[in-house]
């Protein structure tokens, strides 16, 4: 396995090549959201849709979700940001801000485990 691109006490970020994107584990908050922005902008977004895997993320702050939406809206026409998550919280935030509308090029793939 490749070493993470970024590590701190709360969060690790790995780059993924196929599909192009990022895989995160831990917690994203005000202390490390800038790292997410930086590594997101470095993803090769020309060739395909971009995937951000949040399956191992236990907390994603609202500002970081805003970043993901802003990034999705900067993608080339026809390209989408695919977000994987295991909590319903991301969907709830998207809905509250109207970011679940079809014109926002962000696809949320939820895999919520049973309690």
């Amino acid at each position: 396995m490749h070493p993470p691109l970024y590590t701190d006490a709360l969060l690790r970020i790995w780059g993924t090549a196929d599909p192009p994107g990022l895989r995160l584990a831990g917690q994203v908050d005000v202390t490390n959201q800038a790292a997410l922005v930086g590594h997101l902008l470095a993803v090769d977004k020309v060739s395909a849709d971009v995937t951000v895997d949040l399956n191992e993320v236990t907390f994603l702050n609202f500002a970081s979700l805003h970043v993901l939406v802003a990034f999705a809206e900067l993608l080339e026409p026809g390209r989408r940001l695919i977000v994987h998550t295991r909590t319903g919280a991301v969907a709830e935030m998207l809905r509250a801000c109207g970011w679940d509308r079809p014109e926002v090029p962000l696809t949320l793939l939820e895999e919520i485990p049973d309690e």
Binding site: F59, N61, A89, E92, E115
Partner: peptide
């Protein structure tokens, strides 16, 4: 319930981040 705790934590984090910012 777990899903309500997730929502609460987003709210708490946002309120605290607001105080910090």
């Amino acid at each position: 319930p777990a899903d309500r705790i997730d929502s609460l934590l987003i709210c708490v984090d946002e309120a605290a981040a607001n105080a910090v910012r």
